[in-house]
């Protein structure tokens, strides 16, 4: 996933990573988490990511690799990670403790549901409120600014048009004129800055 140059390939690889992760969860006797992993990450979030990549039509330019100096460090870190993995495998095999047979129902739907709606109800609800806040925040950020662009010409008592639209007659059909009664009102309506307030004759 990291090595790909094409962002879409990276995204697809990431989907593969998520699905593999779900398989790991299954082997860890947590089928519910595995299913949720696939539904939420592979099924919903990554669809949006792929969607955005497809819409933006990102260039697949062969960029020169930046941060070349970091390559040795990255290799070292990877080696450490690998060594760690080898050690873990060795350690687990060498351990005399047999894996516990009765992993019981830790990963099953019922136990997770009970946990979420009894013991951990408050954190669960707080998380949902956090998500709600994120949604409202995103919408608020996306809706800043007035009704028209800051290049609008404001004539009190007259109809309000955007300057650039007046210059190019072909767009005149797209305009919805708004009648105002004072400069203040028009400015409030448009959300324009000072330099754009000068009336056009």
């Amino acid at each position: 996933m990291v090595a790909q140059r094409n962002p879409l390939y990276s995204a697809i690889s990431l989907i593969g990573v998520f699905i593999s992760l779900a398989c790991l969860y299954v082997t860890l006797a947590a089928p519910f988490i595995a299913a949720v992993q696939v539904i939420v990450y592979a099924g919903a979030i990554m669809v949006l990511v792929v969607f955005v990549i497809m819409l933006l039509n990102v260039e697949i330019a062969e960029r020169p690799m930046r941060l070349r100096a970091l390559v040795p460090i990255a290799v070292m870190l990877a080696a450490v990670l690998f060594a760690e993995a080898v050690f873990m495998i060795y350690f687990v095999q060498a351990s005399p403790a047999t894996p516990t047979r009765n992993i019981s129902d830790v990963g099953l739907t019922r136990s997770i549901g009970e946990g979420l709606f009894t013991t951990y109800l408050l954190p669960f609800e707080i998380t949902s409120i956090l998500l709600l806040m994120a949604i409202v925040g995103a919408m608020t950020l996306a809706r800043t600014g007035g009704l028209l662009s800051s290049r609008a010409a404001v004539v009190p008592g007259d109809q309000v048009f955007a300057k650039e639209m007046l210059n190019r007659q072909k767009y005149i059909d797209d305009l919805t004129p708004v009648t105002t009664h004072s400069t203040e009102e028009a400015r409030g309506l448009l959300g324009v800055e000072d330099q754009d307030r000068s009336p056009k004759a």
């Binding site: 697809i12 089928p31 519910f32 696939v38 539904i39 669809v47 792929v50 497809m54 099953l108 739907t109």
Partner: peptide, 25 residues
């Protein structure tokens, strides 16, 4: 037969979206 069969169905179905989206792209 397993505990979360219904979720499995929903999950696999949701992965199917990629086939169509990627084909289009």
């Amino acid at each position: 037969r397993f505990d979360v069969a219904l979720l499995y169905v929903l999950g696999v179905t949701s992965v199917g979206v990629y086939g169509i989206a990627l084909a289009g792209w």
